[in-house]
Design a binder for these strands. Structure first.
Length: 602
RNA sequence: GGCCCCGUCGUCUAGCCUGGUCCAGGACACCACCCUUUCACGGUGGUGACGAGGGUUCGAAUCCCUCCGGGGUCACCA
């Protein structure tokens, strides 16, 4: 029996921060490709590898965070670092067992490149003996100077191969200098030939001979460069399809050239050139590349605008208010750094939202993982199908993607990230939930990001979210919106102010007609039992009827409802009164009305 | 600047490979109206694009060329 064909895709993040929205899409497409392959009887596998060869910027916490972000999105890997996540039962909100994502069933790990250095060195040795790699001793400063000279002379800078290095010849002198401990990097002898990359999305991309120079494959610290490690690992991990962002396209000829030069150490066979597919990048609405620096930019702008309006605001005052200190703030404002921490602190100080860039940001802002997945999939891919109404099908889930994904339908042009459309998708998903499901999701989100508010709300009524759910769902575009919607219930009964404009319009106008209505409503409410949303609604209608607010179309409850709203919320906007008053409870409602009547004094 | 990639409504896109059914369809946003106790939701309708110019063809969003525009990349980062 023939072996089952294998299709392996991989996502290879460097653990230097959170998972970027663009990275999430790359991961999603790789995952989808592998899953789709299974329908054709292929053993499709999605692999994760952590590219931590940058010693100074990588961290384990970051690696873990990225894995957790992927798991949150529901993108699970077949080969890769292990991550324990809450088990199936936790979906219902109960604490259940845990299960593990990842592992190494094929024995191709470890999946952290820092633990694979011996492997890289063995291949570099082989390359050295084949005369395809050599030590180079120029210092970074020297190279910088050469680069600057070239730019000044308007020449294209390329590293010039030392005259004593001959392709195909093992360079004993250089290697012995290297062995003796002299600081050096190792460079790859780039062949003098045309390299063609067969890209499954873009078609053939040719690179003319002489276009590329001898790239560094091992840094002075002994770690491989990204380019080299990728090539070795993709081969050793059996990666067959490389789907990644277009920013890597220009690097691909280098990778292909190395694959041609390398042989496996175990069986002497040449490296396999994987199938490549470079997908378009995701940019901001202004066309710039989406970057975590955008958060710093937004915070900086908010601070500068405020300082321009109010000269008393200075880096010093901000430094002390945010607890960041004056030097950190002034450095940040001068653009010397893009510290995420300072950006967050300033955004908090000026109460401006920072743009969501990383998955973690979207999660905190109350976006649903399935919506992020759906939306991001649409950036660069679409199923090309119609829904039951004959409209373009654009709402779908992970299983759908796993079933229908194909490289053929990945676009070639870059796309802009339209936050308004994302928000609309999120709102639609929330509106489509059952109330029970909505409550579970909201509680989980609150427990993570607003635990104090959750406690306050449920102290008022343990069933508060359940009561409000039907009113909340069409009003909340994100889970975080719930905070704003329930603000009235979070306030102390005597702890909110009455908006003067709302008081004027709904209570004082017409000689205090609103206040009169409020008194009438109060007496209906005071004798109400049971205290349910429906009963409250009926009581308000009765009050309106009693006051004569009846037209040929029926009872007009507005003149009664608005004064109540101002009384219980302080403003003329709130969720529907039935649910709102039900959550407050009878005693609090009456107390709020009484305080309003007293303070307004009409 | 060199090299490379891309170019349909403001945005995401369907259509392009296999020219005619496209005076270009959908979604988001926007505008108007309806519904309505506020805010939302919802309903109906509307504004709005084949980057430009040349070819090829009876016929081009679809094929070819040029130009223009946008992006990527040129590290001992990944």
């Amino acid at each position: 029996m023939a072996p089952i064909p294998l299709a392996v895709t991989r996502f290879a993040p460097s653990p230097t921060g959170h998972l970027h929205i663009g990275g999430a899409r790359s991961a999603l497409f790789c995952w989808a490709f592998a899953r789709r392959a299974r329908r054709d009887g292929i053993d499709g596998r999605f692999l994760i590898r952590i590219e931590d060869t940058d010693q100074t910027r990588s961290s384990d916490e970051s690696a873990r965070g990225i894995l957790e972000d992927l798991a949150w999105l529901g993108i699970e890997w077949d080969d890769g670092p292990e991550l324990k996540v809450a088990g199936e039962s936790s979906r219902s909100g109960e604490t259940g067992g845990t299960r593990t994502i990842g592992g190494d069933p094929r024995g191709v790990g470890p999946f952290f490149q820092a633990r694979r250095v011996a492997l890289y060195n063995a291949h570099i040795d082989a390359l050295a003996h084949a005369g395809r790699a050599y030590p180079a001793f120029e210092t970074p400063e020297e190279l910088d100077a050469r680069r600057r000279d070239a730019i000044a002379a308007k020449r294209t800078y390329r590293y010039e191969r030392p005259a004593d290095v001959l392709p195909g010849v093992f360079h004993e002198q250089r290697w012995s200098r290297a062995r003796s401990g002299e600081r050096h990097v190792v460079r790859f002898v780039f062949p003098e030939e045309e390299v063609i990359v067969h890209d499954s999305i873009l078609g053939d991309v040719r690179t003319a001979p002489g276009e590329l120079d001898d790239l560094v494959i091992r840094k002075a610290d002994g770690f491989p460069t990204y380019h080299f490690a990728v090539v070795i690992d993709d081969e050793l991990m059996g990666v067959t399809h490389v789907l990644r962002a277009q920013e890597h396209l220009a690097n691909t000829p280098r990778h292909v050239a190395m694959q041609r030069a390398l042989r496996r150490l175990d069986n002497g066979r040449p490296f396999t050139v994987p199938v490549y597919g470079h997908m378009p990048v995701i940019c901001n609405m202004d066309g710039s590349k989406m970057s975590k620096r955008d958060k710093a930019k937004a915070a900086r702008k908010a601070a500068r605008d405020a300082m321009a309006r109010d000269p008393s605001i200075t880096a010093a005052t901000l430094g002390s208010q945010t607890g960041m200190g004056e030097p950190a703030v002034s450095g940040f404002l001068a653009g010397e750094n893009d510290s995420a921490q300072t950006a967050e602190a300033l955004a908090g100080r000026f109460n401006v939202p920072l743009p969501e860039i990383e998955i973690w940001d979207f999660r905190r802002s109350g976006y649903l993982p399935e919506v992020i997945v759906n939306f991001v999939a649409l950036l660069g891919w679409n199923p090309g199908m119609k829904d039951a109404d004959g409209k373009d099908l654009e709402k779908f889930d992970l299983p759908f993607i796993a079933e229908h994904f194909s490289i053929d339908r990945v676009g070639r042009s870059s796309s802009k990230f339209d936050r308004a459309k994302l928000l609309s998708f999120n709102a639609d998903a929330i509106a489509a939930m059952t109330d029970d499901h909505f409550v579970r999701r909201v509680r989980r989100w609150f427990a993570e990001y607003e635990p104090g508010s959750l406690a306050t709300l449920e102290a008022r009524d343990p069933a508060a979210l359940g009561i409000l759910a039907p009113a909340l769902r069409p009003r909340c575009r994100t889970l975080r919106d719930v905070v704003r919607q329930v603000a009235f219930a979070l306030a102390q009964d005597n702890g909110y102010a009455f908006d003067p404009a709302a008081v004027e319009k709904h209570l004082r106008a017409g000689g205090g007609a609103g206040a009169l209505s409020l008194r009438e409503a109060r007496s209906h409410l005071a004798s109400l039992d049971p205290w349910s949303p429906e009963a409250i609604q009926v009581a308000i209608e009765q009050a309106a009827r009693r006051l004569g607010f009846v037209t040929e179309k029926g009872v007009n409850v507005g003149p009664v409802a608005q004064p109540i709203r101002v009384a219980i919320a302080g403003v003329s906007v709130s969720p529907p009164l039935g649910e709102s008053l039900a959550v407050l409870g009878k005693a609090a409602t009456l107390a709020r009305i009484d305080r309003c009547l007293k303070e307004v004094g009409v």
